[in-house]
């Protein structure tokens, strides 16, 4: 709580958080395959560019946000991306939120169906270290 020239600020109750699609995530993960064909550098570049196009890096942020998520065969996001890095600063929180938002906003992803086993779980490092200062 703070008081600023007659304005008193308090946090509003409990946060309302929606349930995420854990069950659908389970269904996708149970579907295992046997072949692991690597993505070509072109396929990776297209995937990376798609995410970069959906990401609005927060202006005040710095550092790296690492997150992991699962995709269905049709390229849809399964569940909510999981942030693997951690931080408590406002800069980090803004960066982490922006990264999760970018992944959710960008789906579905266009990736080669025959290589699904390779890309069904993805880790991304959203790197803001060279972005600050303009």
């Amino acid at each position: 709580m703070r008081k600023a020239l007659g304005i008193e600020r308090v946090k509003v109750g409990a946060r309302l958080v929606l349930a995420t699609g854990v069950l659908s995530g389970c269904a996708a993960m149970a579907d295992s395959g046997t072949s692991l064909l690597p993505l070509t550098s072109d396929e990776l570049a297209v995937f990376r560019d798609q995410i970069a196009g959906c990401w609005i890096p927060p202006h005040g942020s710095d550092g790296v946000v690492r997150l992991q998520f699962d995709l269905s065969r049709s390229g849809e996001l399964v569940g909510t991306p999981q942030v693997l890095s951690s931080g408590k600063s406002p800069e980090y929180k803004a960066a982490a939120t922006s990264a999760v938002r970018a992944v959710a906003r960008c789906a579905p992803y266009s990736l080669p169906a025959e290589k699904y086993e390779t890309w069904k779980t993805v880790t991304l490092n959203f790197d803001l270290r060279d972005m600050r200062g303009y």
Partner: peptide
């Protein structure tokens, strides 16, 4: 299954949309 059931793609995203 004779190898790990899945692999991970790991990418660095160093550019965004301003």
């Amino acid at each position: 299954i004779s190898q790990p059931a899945y692999a991970l793609i790991e990418l660095d995203i160093t550019q965004g949309n301003v």
